[in-house]
Lab assay of single mutants.
Amino acid sequence: MEVRTIKVFTTVDNINLHTQVVDMSMTYGQQFGPTYLDGADVTKIKPHNSHEGKTFYVLPNDDTLRVEAFEYYHTTDPSFLGRYMSALNHTKKWKYPQVNGLTSIKWADNNCYLATALLTLQQIELKFNPPALQDAYYRARAGEAANFCALILAYCNKTVGELGDVRETMSYLFQHANLDSCKRVLNVVCKTCGQQQTTLKGVEAVMYMGTLSYEQFKKGVQIPCTCGKQATKYLVQQESPFVMMSAPPAQYELKHGTFTCASEYTGNYQCGHYKHITSKETLYCIDGALLTKSSEYKGPITDVFYKENSYTTTIK
């Protein structure tokens, strides 16, 4: 009895394709271990004539594949690729409408935090270190965002349907971005203890939790000093293409032309909904596939993004 075979390709990165001759009487799992086709788990399936010449994702289970996976995804987590594939199996079914010149995501599976993050990423200057993220990001900007969303979920250790947080998501993504040249110098002034300067680099240099107003941050924000008295913390120097200011959701007025974009969060910790506000020729609110415009805006804002380049204080 002759062994019926077909020729397929296996890959971990969709760049390096490895030619395989597979036995049609055995499952993919018996031949390769966990195997995925377009995100779908085909591990328990036997090869079919229609699979001839198709590319299958496999887990990096030998040295060659491990090197290829690390170079593309910059992670050695053995569960990463499987999590990416199972997320992709959902995100490829989502709709990605162009809204006001940006790629958004039609609401499904509690994905409003991903839509808000995706919209924000198209408006701030950011370059990702893992080629996987950078490639998928370019495709997302062009309207094909399924891979990018699935990668975000995998890097953030999230599953489809789980509630997510924009600030946490951005923080994970910033860790995989090139923020080497970003720098922030802060000064804390206390009447009792004097003053202390701190220099922050990388992710810490672009994120701040405690106030939404970048102007206020430049002037000074009140913080408790270690001595128990009130101290003032203010920005001395900022070198970065953008800054992200966050605070627990509270009524906040966004003035046209003073910011790049913002995240609105309605609801409580267990259950809520994100919308995205962007400042173009007027203010726009993007909620999944829905767009509304207004000249002014007041609502429960939790993150505001500002364009920056270089700032030095005039406070002496």
Rank of each mutant, 00 (worst) to 15 (best):
C261W: 02
P300S: 11
T120W: 09
E239P: 03
M244R: 05
L235P: 04
F56E: 05
C190E: 04
G82Y: 09
D13H: 06
Q122H: 05
T313M: 13
Q123V: 02
Y84L: 04
Q20W: 11
L290A: 13
K298E: 11
R66I: 11
L81P: 07
Y113E: 06
C182S: 05
S240R: 02
L186T: 14
Y172G: 14
A289N: 03
T211R: 01
T116C: 15
D62R: 09
N309T: 15
E68I: 04
Y57W: 11
H48W: 14
A87W: 02
N49S: 13
Y306F: 06
G194D: 00
D38K: 10
V189K: 11
R184G: 13
I223N: 05
T27S: 11
S240P: 01
A250V: 14
T312P: 07
I6K: 07
H90L: 10
A136S: 09
G257F: 00
F32Y: 09
L212S: 04
V12E: 08
A115D: 03
T314A: 14
E144I: 05
D180G: 09
L151W: 02
H48Y: 14
T314Q: 15
A40E: 15
V58K: 09
Y73Q: 01
A115K: 02
V22I: 10
V185I: 12
C285S: 07
H51I: 03
G228P: 02
T232N: 02
C149D: 03
T292C: 10
T19I: 10
T5R: 13
V42E: 02
L65I: 08
I45E: 14
L254M: 02
W94F: 00
C271G: 12
C261I: 11
L81Q: 09
A40R: 11
V203A: 13
E162R: 03
T169D: 00
S246G: 00
T226A: 15
H74N: 10
Q230Y: 15
P78Q: 11
T55D: 09
I45G: 14
T199I: 13
G267K: 08
Y269S: 13
Q175Y: 11
K201I: 08
R66E: 07
E253T: 14
E281V: 01
T266I: 10
P97K: 08
V12N: 11
E264C: 04
Y252R: 03
A69H: 15
Q31V: 15
P249G: 00
S25V: 13
Y155C: 00
E52Q: 12
L17G: 10
L121S: 05
N110H: 04
E144D: 14
H51E: 11
P248H: 04
T75D: 11
S240A: 04
C190G: 01
T211H: 02
N178I: 04
A108F: 03
C225V: 01
K275Y: 00
S213I: 02
G164H: 04
V243W: 00
S263L: 00
T198L: 14
E2Q: 11
C227D: 01
E281F: 01
S263C: 10
T302L: 05
T313H: 14
K218S: 01
I15S: 11
R139G: 10
T11Y: 08
C285W: 08
I105K: 04
L126A: 04
K233A: 14
K201Y: 13
K44Y: 13
S86C: 10
F217N: 02
L283F: 07
V166P: 03
A250R: 13
E2D: 12
E204V: 02
E239A: 06
I286T: 00
I315R: 15
T103G: 02
L126S: 04
T312L: 13
D287T: 00
K316Q: 15
H256E: 08
T282F: 03
L65F: 10
C156V: 06
N14F: 15
L81I: 15
T5E: 13
H256T: 13
V243C: 06
L163V: 05
A247P: 04
K127W: 04
S240M: 03
N187R: 13
G299C: 00
I45Q: 14
Y311Q: 05
E253F: 05
Y155Q: 02
Y28V: 06
A87S: 10
D38Q: 11
Q20S: 13
V3P: 14
L179V: 09
F305T: 02
D135A: 11
Y137I: 09
Y172R: 14
N89Y: 14
H176A: 03
D38A: 13
G33V: 05
S246D: 07
L212C: 08
V166C: 03
A87M: 02
E125D: 15
W94N: 04
H276P: 00
D13P: 00
F148N: 07
H176V: 05
L37Q: 11
E2T: 12
Y113L: 13
V12D: 09
E308V: 10
K183D: 02
A117E: 00
V160M: 02
K219Y: 04
I301Q: 01
T169Q: 00
N49I: 12
V206G: 00
P60D: 15
C225W: 02
V8H: 00
E253D: 03
V221P: 07
R83G: 07
A154M: 07
F70W: 12
K233Q: 13
K201G: 08
Y73T: 06
A146E: 07
L88T: 00
A142L: 12
A142D: 15
T266G: 10
V67M: 14
V58Y: 06
T55F: 06
K95Q: 12
L254W: 05
T103R: 08
T169I: 11
C261H: 00
K298I: 12
F217W: 01
K92V: 11
G33E: 06
V185W: 03
S213T: 06
N16H: 15
K280R: 14
D62E: 11
T27L: 12
A87T: 04
T55Q: 12
Q20R: 15
R139P: 06
T11D: 06
T5M: 13
N309P: 10
A250Y: 14
G272A: 00
L173D: 01
H51W: 07
Y36L: 04
V21D: 14
L212R: 01
N268M: 05
H90A: 12
T91A: 06
A247W: 01
F70C: 07
S310Y: 12
K275V: 09
Q216P: 02
L133W: 02
A250S: 13
H273I: 00
G29K: 08
S246W: 01
Y252P: 01
T192S: 15
Q238P: 01
D63W: 11
D287L: 00
K218M: 02
P130C: 11
Q195S: 15
N16P: 09
Q196V: 10
A250L: 09
G228F: 08
F259W: 04
S181W: 15
A154P: 08
P34R: 09
E204A: 09
T312N: 09
A108R: 08
